[in-house]
Amino acid sequence: MSKHHITTTINGDEVDFLCETSQTLLDVLRDELHLTGTKEGCATGDCGACSVSLDGVLVCSCLVLGVETGGKKIETIEGMADGDELHPLQRKFVEHVALQCGICTPGLLVAARSLLAKNPDPTEEEVRFGLAGNLCRCTGYQNIVNAVLDAAAEMRGA
């Protein structure tokens, strides 16, 4: 069975890859392109660890087939910092001890960035509901919520 040849843009770079129909975007990112910052926690869309942005929309990359991504723009955790300059969310996660083991962190950061793009001034409740698709077992979420609120304030220039 021949593979599909797909051309996408990942974190601003044009990327070609070959994939089988059954391979998810998560499989492609991790196994074919070695972009392992995107994590697999469940492969069924229930934990959010594999969150990426697809044409500006937050998705679980385990629920997208590689073959569906032709011509699309994909943004992963690897593209979040600007060179040496961490994204404010990344910096605030570090400052607020918003990560422990860190396995859910890339997905949470990608989800939080998407949340703030739509709602730059969220309430605590909006952050909690906005991040409800991302499981974290270590932190109890509190420091994550605080980090997102603090980053939002900084990004608004408040």
Binding site: R30, T36, G37, E78, Q90, V94, V97, G102, P106, L109
Partner: peptide, 17 residues
């Protein structure tokens, strides 16, 4: 925090990585 930057940038290497 020595482990934090690698974790927020997706560069920390877990076993499956």
């Amino acid at each position: 925090r020595p482990d934090a930057i690698e974790k927020v940038t997706g560069r920390a290497r877990y076993a499956a990585d």
